[in-house]
């Protein structure tokens, strides 16, 4: 079992089905013990502590001010620069398991197909079912099996992207591992963070997972066709989204019936046009 998240699934990171020990951040995840100087943050300067009385002799304090995920942040920025140079629009799609990420990605790629070429990177703990579904639909897809890691990291995306012909793509969609907690903290280098909430989940999900919903650029209410059957309180859900994700664009749609899809597609096309500038 993973000591990090207790997910109960053991394994290693695989990209496209092949072990990717180089890709997996055992370094990020479990510490690699190397000690080199880091760029950002500047050289640490030490100074004697002001409050000498509370301080055993010989001890010094030094300000560090470095983010605990700075390595991922650096790699995410590198990804972002690389993707921008390729004029790709990159989406990081996040939600609980089963909210409809794969289905929405498949439908989106199918509708865009006549105008924009879409590629997908799918993160999953253990299976490659989602990648298989997308591949069957004719979409270029790379599977990242994260093993014990319940989120994608920037380094995994860099490795996975090497396996796609990015020059032949306009939009890269990343399906993150189904999890509303830690993926919020890992920038992948995306342009837009898309967080899904399905009508079959609680309306108060945004209030239960504030870091994730706050980080959303776009919130999508999915499975609108099931809203009535599920007794979904639309007003309450939208109020919760507006409060936690004040700045996010909100879409309501059903990937099953296509209801609400045109507004979402039009938005992506606009975003892609500005990514291309």
């Amino acid at each position: 079992m993973c000591q990090e998240c207790g997910c109960g699934i053991g394994g290693e990171v695989k990209i496209g089905g092949r072990p990717a020990s180089a890709a997996h951040s055992h370094s990020t995840h479990h510490g690699d013990g190397h000690s080199h100087e880091h760029g950002g943050g500047g050289a640490p300067h030490s100074h004697a502590h002001d409050d000498a009385t509370a301080f055993p002799p010989g001890r010094q304090t030094v300000a560090v001010q470095r983010g605990l995920l700075e390595k991922n942040e650096r790699l995410a920025e590198r990804n972002r620069g690389f993707f921008r140079a390729k004029k790709l629009l990159v989406l990081n799609v996040l939600s609980s398991p089963g909210s409809g990420k794969t289905t929405l990605i498949q439908k989106t790629a199918a509708i865009l197909a006549s105008r924009l070429r879409v590629g997908v990177i799918v993160g999953d703990l253990a299976t490659d079912n989602d990648a298989a579904r997308l591949r069957e639909a004719g979409i270029p897809v790379v599977q990242v099996t994260t093993g014990t890691v319940c989120h994608l990291e920037a380094e995994m995306i860099a490795k996975a992207a090497e396996r796609l012909d990015l020059d032949a793509l306009d939009v890269l969609i990343i399906e993150n591992v189904g999890n509303l907690v830690c993926p919020a903290a890992y920038d992948l280098g995306e342009d837009l963070r898309i967080v899904l909430l399905s009508t079959t989940e609680g309306e108060d999900k945004p209030l239960k997972y504030p870091p994730m919903f706050h980080s959303a650029d776009v919130a999508v209410v999915t499975k609108s066709d099931l809203a009535a059957a599920a007794g979904f309180d639309r007003a309450q859900a939208l109020a919760a989204l507006h409060r936690i994700a004040h700045h996010a664009r909100i879409f309501e749609l059903s990937a099953r019936t296509g209801d609400g899809m045109p507004a979402w597609i039009e938005y992506l096309e606009q975003q892609r046009a500005s990514a291309k500038r």
Partner: peptide, 23 residues
């Protein structure tokens, strides 16, 4: 969240910083 690996990062940076300052 990944408190164990976050703590590992913190300790690694702490040790690096101490060493860089001669500690």
């Amino acid at each position: 969240m990944h408190e164990v690996s976050l703590m590992e990062n913190a300790v690694r940076m702490a040790v690096e910083t101490a060493r860089a300052s001669g500690g």
